[in-house]
Amino acid sequence: MNIIDESGILAISTRLQRLSDQLRKDGALIYKAFNIDFEPKWFPVIYTLHHKPEISVVELAAEIGYAHPSTISLLKELEKEKLIESKKDAHDERKRLLRLSTKGKALVTRMQPVWQAMTEALKELTDTQHNLMKAIDEVEEQFTMKGFYERVKRKM
């Protein structure tokens, strides 16, 4: 056990980051093993566009829970890879509507069996005594009621 592990709840952000890094690293290895040229960081955008075939940038950012600049950065990468395309909204010229390109749709078709296997493996990993996904849902709900900053401020 290292000092971060010993620090308990104080290092929750670091521990979650470590877990996230490992999942992304293994995710990249999985895609590579199946000859799929895909970065795990692209997942929220591609998955959302698969389920919501046309969506604005603002709606996408809200849907994936990312800040607008982070979303724009991902979109630029995906446009460069020709996995997504955009067009101006006919009703509002300021809005850009996003969708999967033909190449993006073909990629999703190839990834679906891999996503199924990943889902099954992730269920095995997280279906523990204290089910991680249920715990994350509970913590996210707590955040909607009152954030970390407000809670600390109240303790001082």
Rank of each mutant, 00 (worst) to 15 (best):
T71D: 13
I84Q: 00
K105F: 04
K134T: 13
P69G: 05
E93I: 06
L49N: 06
E120N: 11
R99I: 04
E93N: 04
K123V: 14
D89E: 03
P69K: 00
T48F: 02
I72N: 06
T119W: 03
R96H: 08
Y47V: 10
A135C: 06
L132V: 12
T119I: 11
A61Y: 01
K95D: 08
E54M: 10
A135Y: 07
I64N: 00
M111I: 14
A90T: 10
G65P: 08
I64C: 00
A117I: 12
Y66A: 05
H91A: 08
H50S: 13
R99C: 08
R94F: 08
A117Y: 10
P113R: 10
Q129A: 13
T109K: 14
H50M: 10
G104T: 10
P113C: 04
M133V: 15
L125Q: 14
V108N: 04
Y66G: 02
K82D: 10
T109Y: 03
A61K: 00
L107C: 11
Q129P: 07
L83N: 04
L132K: 05
P113E: 01
P53L: 01
V114G: 04
L132F: 14
Y66K: 01
T128C: 01
L97H: 07
K76I: 07
L122M: 04
G65I: 03
E85S: 10
T109Q: 11
G65K: 01
L107R: 02
V114R: 02
L74Q: 13
L107F: 05
L60D: 04
L83T: 04
L122I: 13
V114T: 11
S73R: 14
K134D: 13
E120R: 11
T102Y: 00
T48I: 08
T48Y: 01
H68V: 13
D92M: 03
E63M: 10
P113K: 07
I55Q: 01
